[in-house]
């Protein structure tokens, strides 16, 4: 992790393609939701997920529901 290759460099504003969720985004799909979170279990930004605004909203809601049911932690 310490050494990241050159391709991880990010300069300025990069325009990326939108990514669609590959799995159903709902609170029961815990492993997928966890993959959309940082190691500290923070929700990844749209920039990191590449989701559209609509998909990101759905993701946000699903993660928050999973947190409420103790499927995911609020913090770690």
């Amino acid at each position: 992790m310490a050494f990241k290759s050159k391709k991880f460099r990010r300069v300025g504003r990069d325009v990326k393609k939108r990514v669609k969720p590959t799995e159903p985004v709902e609170y029961k799909n815990v492993s997928y939701l966890a993959s959309m979170m940082s190691p500290q279990y923070r929700i990844l930004s749209r920039r990191r997920t590449g989701f559209s605004g609509k998909d990101q909203r759905i993701l946000k809601l699903a993660i928050k529901r999973a947190r409420f049911l103790a499927l995911l932690p609020y913090t770690a």
Binding site: K7, K16, V19, A34, S35, M37, S38, L44, R48
Partner: peptide, 19 residues
Amino acid sequence: GAEATEGADVTDTIEAVKA
């Protein structure tokens, strides 16, 4: 945590390829 980082790496690589 390790699982989560793996997931993050995947998105990183996706971004990296695109960028």
